[in-house]
Structure formats: C-alpha cells, structure tokens
Design a protein around this nucleic acid. Structure first.
Length: 630
RNA sequence: GCCGACGUAGCUCAGCUGGUAGAGCACUUCACUCGUAAUGAAGGGGUCCCCGGUUCGAGUCCGGGCGUCGGCUCCA
C-alpha cells in the first residue's frame, strides 16, 4: 500500500503499516519526534494503521504551536495527572480528563477533599513521572474485559463510561495507570517539557447537577517551557484588560456588597451609557419603532399568564403587599403584551414595533455573577415586534440590518448562532419548521455565516444570537432575535386581518446591544478602555502650561463645549508631566497643551499611545468633528 | 446554589509561632509656575468584611454568615 505525504510524494509501505511505520520509513529522527498523524483533519494515533492511498501528515515535537500537536500533548499530560492523583491519594476514583483549549483537566473523586496545596504536590509528582519516563501503550479491548478491569480497580465512573460508550474500546497504559481512552497519545512523555496545574474546581459528573460533584483539576502543558511562560504572561495581560479593572480605574462603574450584582454607575460611566441610549433612541426612531414605558412590578397573575411563574420564578425577585404577590420584571415582554392588548389592532398597522429600555431584575445564582457581564439588575435595548406570519422574515432581516449597523459603528466582530427547537417546547412541528426557515432565510439574505445550535432554542421559539468573547476568550451573548408564537396567544393578542377575522400576531423579541451593562463591559475589554471618541466620557482635556495660560485654556474648553464636545481643563497646580500622565491614564483621546507657543498660532495636540502631533486649532476642530460622528 | 481560593486605608499589597496595624500610589496642606507619562516636604486617613466562640489578650485560631475571584450548573 502507499500513502501520500504533504509534498505530494508517495510512500510505499507494507499492508497494515502504522503512522509510526511511515515515520520510520522516512527517517529515524522523524520516528523519534513523531507525536501524531493527521489525515484530512482527522487526528490519529501513531500506533494505528494507515489506509491505502490516504494523504497523511506526521506531526512532530517541532510542531510545538500546532493546536492538534498540543492537543495530543495535553491529553497525555492529563493521563499523567490521573496517574499522579491515584498514587498520591490512594482511593481516588478517576472520571474523565480531556484536553481543552489552552490546556486540559481531569475530574476526580478524592477520598478526602483536597485544597489548593495539592496542586503543587500533584505537579511535583507529574514532573517526577516525566523525569522517570513514561511510554504509552495502546490496546483494543472488548467491553466485558474493560468493564471487568474497572470493576476490579474500583472505578465506577469508568464502568459507566464503558457501558455508555459506543464503538470499539481501547486502553492506554502508562506506568501503572490504565485509562479507557480513544487517544491519540504521545509515544512517551519526553516531549512534555512544561506542565502547570492551574486551578481546582467542582464539576458535576457528566455535567448533571443531580449527579455527584467531582473535583476538577485544571492544568496546561507545552512542548517548550518558553511557551508556558508566554501563556502565563498572556493571562496577566488579559487581567489588565479585565473590564472590572478598567471600570474601576477609569471611574466608570463600581459595586457594593450591599447590592451584589447591581452596578453603581459613576458620572463617567453614565456618559457612555447615555451615548448608547441616545444612539438607541435615534436609530429606533429612524427604523419605525415606538418608545413605550411599562411598569416595573406586576401582580403574579401576569407572570402566570406569561408562563414565567412556572418556568422562571426561582430567578425572580418577588414581594408581597396587601396580601398580593408581586414580581419585579425579569423581562419586558409580558408588559408589552399587556400594552399591545390595550388597543385594537388592524393588519394595516402591523408590524408594530415597541421599544423600551426597561430596568430588569433577575435573581441570578450568586456563583454566576461576573462584573458587568452577568448582573442582577440590568437594562436591555429591548423591543418587541408584533407582526403577521408573512412579515416575520423581513422583520428579522430588519433586526439583523440594525444589529450590523451597530457592530460596524463600534468595530465589532460577532459570531452568529441559530438555535433550533428544543426538546421541551410549545407549538406544532409545522410552526417550528416555518419559524426556523424564516430565521435561516433572513440570515442568508443578510449574507451571514452562522453556526446552528440544535435544540438550543427557547421553549416558545427559535432564535438568532450574536456572541462576543471577553479578554480570556469566554463567550458572551450580546444580541438576540427570538421568534415567539406562544406569548401572543397566551395573552389573547389579536389583529383584525383583511378577511375581517381575528388573527394572532407573531412576536419577535430583540435586543441588539443586549444588556447595556454587559455590552459596556465586553466593549471595554474589546477596546482595552481606549474607547472611540464618540463614547469617551471625556473627549478633550486642555492643559495650560502654567498659570498665565489658564484663562485661555478655559475659553478653549468652552469653545469645544459649544461645539458639542466633552472638554475640560486640568487646572491643578501639578507639573505638566504629571497632568499629561493622568490624562493618559484616564485614556482621554485628545490632550491639548496650551502655552506660549500655542498662543502664537499652532496647537500641540497630544493623543494617547504617545502619538504627538502639532496642528492648527481649525484642523483640530474638524478632526474632532469627523471622529465624533456616529 | 455547588467545589476551591480569597477578603487589612480609595487602589495595590505587607503584617512570623496570638501581644493592640504598616508601605507605595491616591487624598489634603505648603513650597515650586512648570513644555509632552510621576517636583519636593509635611499631614490626614482603618468596624483588619460581619456575627459569635476560644484566650489575660484575636487582623492572626475555631464556627456561622456575607461578598469577591476561578470553575461547574444555570442563562427563559
């Protein structure tokens, strides 16, 4: 048989040859350094046979930054961790330990709870294993043998995996540790030049809250110690972009133990908020939305009608007055439905687009709160569109167009996701077919690449979501466009059709920036706090070089304010260098120094990131004007 | 909510085996009147997260609670 190498040359091999055989046929060095065979994107263990005619690439320790090569390395490192855990903490039961982005983890049930100091012990043991040397042996096993083995070893989680796995099973053995594993793995532990265990966490077995909670040990590994250093360095860097840090340092937002998960917006933060609010209002008006305002607190009857009392009560803040139960609204839609139902509607006035940036409260689990990205009190740039079934596709397209107008304005890249019918749902399959088709059609018409998340839709309809990542690469939902066939019916909403009969409208829920809190948080991480001019809380700061120039500086700032800019003067009796530094730390886009030289006729204009330019006053104004345009 | 860690001045942090709390930055005052990222000096500032316990004595040890961080679950 023969295989095709990356340079298109062909390699003759005996039938049944493995990846390792192929490597040996090419050269002993390659065979020694080989870690993995890649064939058409498939990762295959070196010990497995190749197929006649297939194209293969042999990855080696020199592919130290290749994600697939790292994947194998980390997978093997996870096995070393399991071996270490079993040796150091006898009686430990092992669950699963896959490689993940940037590292690996392994889930264990320890006989006694372990603390963070265990990480060092485990790491030390792994290093000892590597120093000693480990070889991985692969062996196909049948189900009975595998089950028997793990039963004897007292590994109930592995037994469960044997029973639920499909396809053929294999064992990987290194040292005295045998794991049920599909592979692929390294030949031996030599390439693992750097391992670090990073953190400890609880994780439910199979991700199921009702099952026992295991202890998850997170770690990472590299082919090169330098890469580990760099990785740890990058984590440090990411911390500097953390919106919680920036929000505090830039005096935008703060928190208090007295209101967990509920931000305090300081004046500078409020400027950003208001600019986004103005943008929202202006664009909504342009696009045929009507602004409304609905109550904050509703009788529980409303939540019973909407279905939230059953499905969402745990997450609602409730209270009681005069024997009535009330719930603080976690979303605007039920209120909007009440408002829609307060007047009769003709098909001629649909679509009816109702917008409200209402204050929402959700009693999120304490452990899930996360700065501005996951809060208990928030405001969405929310709107609900009531329309006929025929209008759905165009309306969704309108929402997408609106959303992408915003992304472009803000310089954002988002990932689109279409979530389809969940198992637990209301409505008929025909309704779902139509709804999913309408969303997909709108996505195609917008020319958007999107991922389909099967079964991730909401019980009342499918949705399109847009996601962005934070500084550590964690994904957060920003926009959502949801179809809803259920709530209008539950509220008995109607419109009169051209057939003179009453029909139930379709409802589209849409929030484009999502929650303003989350949006501002993630946008701070996205920009590292260097906001575009139109969002900067303070756009220009004028620094008089010394006392005699103060009056001039004041009138310059006045002039800028007349032109609509947020400008101030730093009048403190500090050195110029100090005042420049402070302005830079606040990430103020334009810093204007005013002294003798400028008073003659030019301006020294200093921008952040050290860029310093001298321009005329008129040139500065027009530069500001074009940069501030939204 | 669950697992682990953490909580000391506005911020970043030090504070040993229990003996009555400290630094840098920030802030205030004074001097300097300044040319593109920190002028100098002096001063003020603490419920050591909260409640309880052990102890002659608790920031320090123990128990409970709250909050924060990293995960898990959840995210209509």
């Amino acid at each position: 048989m023969k295989v095709v190498l990356p340079d298109s040359s062909e390699l003759e091999l005996p039938d049944g040859a493995t990846g390792l055989d192929a490597a040996r046929a090419i050269g002993p060095k390659l065979a020694e350094q080989a870690v993995l065979v890649r064939s058409n994107g498939d990762l295959r263990d070196l010990r497995l046979p190749l197929q006649n005619g297939e194209q293969i690439q042999i990855l080696t320790t020199r592919d130290k930054h290749d994600p697939d090569a790292l994947y194998v390395l980390r997978h093997s490192a996870a096995h070393l961790l399991a071996e270490a855990a079993r040796r150091l903490y006898p009686g430990t039961k092992v669950a699963i330990g896959p490689p993940i982005e940037n590292g690996f983890y392994y889930d264990f049930e320890f006989p006694e709870p372990i603390g963070e100091e265990a990480l060092e012990r485990l790491e030390e043991e792994i290093r000892r294993e590597i120093a000693e040397g480990r070889e991985w042996e692969r062996r196909e096993v049948d189900r009975d043998e595998a089950r028997r083995y793990f039963e004897e070893e007292g590994e109930p989680y592995k037994v469960e995996l044997v029973d639920t796995a499909d396809g053929s099973l294999s064992f990987y053995k290194q040292g005295d540790f045998v794991d049920l594993c599909r592979g692929p793995h390294l030949q031996n532990s030599k390439p693992i030049k750097a391992v670090k265990l990073l953190s400890l966490a609880g994780a439910y077995w199979r991700g199921d809250e009702t099952k026992p909670q295991l202890t998850r040990v997170y770690g990472t590994a590299f082919y090169d110690p330098k890469d580990l250093e760099e990785y740890l360095h990058r984590l440090e860097e990411a911390k500097r972009r953390d919106h919680r840090r920036l929000a505090k340092d830039l005096a935008l937002v703060d928190f208090s133990e007295l209101a967990p998960g509920m931000p305090f917006w300081h004046p500078r933060g409020m400027v950003i908020w208001n600019v986004l609010e103005d943008l929202r209002r202006r664009e909504n008006a342009k696009r045929g939305y009507h602004e409304i305002r609905t109550p904050q607190l509703y009788d529980s009857d409303l939540w019973r009608t909407s279905g939230h009392w059953d499905k969402f009560r745990e997450n609602m803040f409730t209270l009681e007055a005069e024997g009535h139960e009330y719930g603080l609204k976690p979303m605007n839609c039920p209120g909007h439905c009440v408002l829609y139902g307060q007047t009769p509607h003709s098909y001629r006035e649909l679509p009816r687009r109702l917008a409200e940036a209402g204050n929402l409260h959700r009693n999120e689990l304490s452990g899930t709160l996360h700065g501005l990205l996951r809060v208990r009190h928030f405001v969405q740039d929310d709107a609900h569109i009531y329309c006929t079934p025929e209008q759905v596709e165009d309306e969704v397209l309108g929402c997408l167009d609106f959303a992408f107008y915003l992304y472009e304005l803000l310089g954002l890249d988002v990932r689109a996701e279409l979530s389809t019918r969940p198992e637990n749902r209301l409505g008929t399959d025909e309704e779902w077919d139509k709804a999913e088709e309408a969303l997909a059609a709108a996505l195609e018409r917008q020319g958007l690449a999107y991922r389909v998340s099967e079964g991730e839709g909401i019980f009342y309809g499918p949705k399109i979501d847009m996601h962005m990542s934070d500084s550590l690469g964690r994904s957060w939902q920003i926009s959502t466009i949801q179809l809803d066939f259920q709530m209008p019916a539950r509220f008995g909403l109607t419109y009169q059709g051209d057939d003179n009969a009453e029909h139930t409208p379709v409802m589209i829920h849409r929030a484009l920036l999502g929650s303003l809190e989350r949006f501002i948080g993630i946008y701070l991480e996205h920009t590292g706090g260097d906001l575009p001019l139109f969002l900067a809380p303070e756009q220009v700061r004028v620094l008089p070089v010394s006392d005699p120039y103060r009056a001039d500086a004041e009138s310059l700032a006045d002039d800028l304010r007349v032109h609509g800019f947020r400008a101030s003067v730093d009048e403190r009796e500090e050195t110029l260098g100090r005042r420049i530094r402070d302005a830079e730390l606040y990430k103020i886009p334009y810093v204007v120094v005013w002294g003798e030289r400028e008073s003659l006729d030019a301006l020294a204009l200093r921008r952040r990131r050290g860029e310093q330019v001298t321009v005329s006053w008129e040139a500065l104004l027009s530069e500001l004007q074009s940069a501030a345009k939204v």
